[in-house]
Design a protein around this nucleic acid. Structure first.
Lengths: 340, 340
DNA sequence: TTTAAACACTCAACCGTTTTCGTAAAAACT
DNA sequence: AGTTTTTACGAAAACGGTTGAGTGTTTAAA
């Protein structure tokens, strides 16, 4: 087990000063060519690698970016992380991932530990808990300390920073329009409880589309599910209670649960009922029938978020101009809807 | 924007020395009570937090652990990361996640950048590429430099370190036994190409089970799929070519693709054909019919891996005893098989 | 020949902590 | 009063680098 070599060791070994070694390795013109050659050869031989901690301490940059997400066993979030990783790595940054587990407290703790000079900036998507409480002091604090911050997907209006979101309302709108255009008359919505920004926005888009196309809105056609692990029952109730020929779901799981219910009740998909979901994940791609979905472009979202953050980190004068990038959703047509 | 306070600033402000401040904040008995009170109050007021970089430099510990996985948009790996995060956080460690993208080169680069004092130890699952090449010099190097290393799931015999794996062979064995016990006579296997350790092991388990139960092994009943994105065709061929009443798949996607094929061809599941898959993810839980699977206990695997690593990091004398933890798989019974 | 510039390197400060050692003053003993 | 022991604090080195200013030597220009 040979430990890493340090500048000092090279210096004593070669009988020069530490600064000479440092400069030689950075190819400074202050150092004579033969000395440089000698030092560089020696360093290469002993596989010298500068200690990144020391460098971080020196220039107060860590080249780490902190990513805080509510959950990691989750298709959308991992897609975003993928995108972040990609551009971060290309720019020489490492990604430290923390999970808030949808809890406000964990989110705060994570931010605080990371903020103690572990990272140069944050990328975060808020936990449900935080969105419910509307307590954003931890974000404000980070910003106050000059720590750049980019929010994605689950964002807050109350915080002034760079953001990347998808146009959830418009995505839902497009989905409803799609269903209508392919012949649906009565469209149900399976959504989450309202405190989640995305649930609210998608519901809005649904309502707007109905309004625009002259279809009366019926509260009864909406089912709001709180716990994703118990979605079968409320969905079954919906089928019991109402007749409809189109379903928009706020996520994949609700969508396939609804399709399961439909199949069991003898409906043909998409002939009798069409389905569209959000989140273009495994389930959408592989369910039978494959699910038409509103794609949220998670990868791109991650890439943009990372790019925004890194720009802020590397610009010389810090401008206080923040900007919200709104991604357009697209509809991925598959087997659960009639062809357009 | 108020920057963080440092010991030095507190010291000059309060007209004491830096060491006094440091000691006062760590509640050293060397410092008089009133001085301590004064300093602590001041520090609290200005929200002093020690700079973790400086501390890392000092004691050559970063309290970060590096996790290298092939992919992050992947149920099993994220489950493992979840487990790692959990125990790491409890022990005060941050998790730096790097993706190898199944590429040897990226794996090497990731390890090298992390090894330059960004982390205290590694947890890694090998990329396909690395397993194919059998080049493990980067792992050896890390170990040589005294960097503890824990491997999980996709491991190598050639490296001597702590490991956590599931008993893949036995999992496949149990699955085949399950199918046999519930009345299947002819069982097909949908696997990956052989260089992947897990594919090989599961195939072995399949063969062993057949042998043990006196069933002749038929090469024709195995289909090996290379690219997960083009699995439908080879599966269709299998259905064309052979008759069988049980299918074991090496992952979820192959399993549901096979079920799709079966349904389309008018087979009833599980009456005509039973299915068992590996990886207990979204698809298994929500497909219609829900898939009986071999659970690999990813969460537990992550927890154990993290615990092993942290033990190595925190033990005083480093013992060179490494140990491989083998997790037992369990079968999660659902709708794609007949009741036991 | 004098003087300045170029060269090749070293010194020392600095980043923010921790920690060992030293020491003056106060307190507790002869 | 003299000696030892505490108490309370400061100086400085160390962690591993970077960097600007300084210094002695060589070389080129005046």
């Amino acid at each position: 087990m040979k430990k890493r070599v340090t500048l000092k060791q090279i210096a004593t070994e070669l009988d020069v000063s530490v600064s000479t070694v440092s400069k030689a390795l950075r190819n400074s013109k202050e150092i004579g060519q033969d000395t440089k050659d000698k030092i560089q050869a020696f360093a290469k031989f002993y596989n010298y690698k500068p200690n990144s901690i020391a460098i971080s301490l020196q220039n107060r940059k860590t080249k780490n970016i902190g990513v805080i997400i509510p959950e990691i066993v989750h298709h959308f979030f991992t897609t975003v992380v993928s995108g972040i990783e990609k551009v971060a790595n290309e720019a020489g940054y490492n990604v430290i991932v923390c999970l808030s587990d949808e809890s406000f407290d964990k989110e705060v703790i994570n931010m605080e530990t990371l903020a103690n000079s572990s990272i140069d900036g944050f990328i975060i998507s808020l936990s449900k808990d935080t969105q419910k409480r509307k307590d954003f002091h931890h974000l404000r604090e980070a910003i106050n300390q000059g720590m750049p911050l980019v929010m994605f997907d689950r964002v807050s209006d109350e915080i002034y920073c760079d953001k990347v979101i998808v146009d959830d309302a418009q995505g839902a709108y497009k989905a409803v329009k799609y269903l209508l255009d392919t012949g649906c008359k009565r469209i149900a919505l399976i959504s989450t409880t309202d405190y989640l920004s995305v649930g609210k926005l998608r519901t809005m888009g649904y309502k707007n589309a109905l309004a625009d196309f002259g279809i009366p809105f019926e509260e009864n056609l909406i089912v709001k599910i709180d716990d994703i692990n118990f979605c079968q029952e409320p969905i079954a109730e919906l089928f019991e209670r109402e007749k409809f020929d189109g379903v928009l779901s706020v996520n994949e799981i609700f969508a396939v649960s609804a399709m399961r219910e439909a199949i069991q009740r003898g409906f043909k998909i998409p002939e009798d009922i069409s389905f569209i979901g959000f989140t273009d994940g495994m389930l959408s791609k592989h369910f039978y029938p494959r699910l038409t979905t509103v794609n949220q472009h998670g990868l791109q979202m991650g890439e943009i978020a990372a790019r925004m953050l890194i720009n802020k980190l590397e610009e010389l004068e810090d401008d206080e101009n923040y900007h919200t990038e709104v991604l357009k959703t697209t509809i991925v047509e598959r087997e659960s809807t009639r062809p357009y």
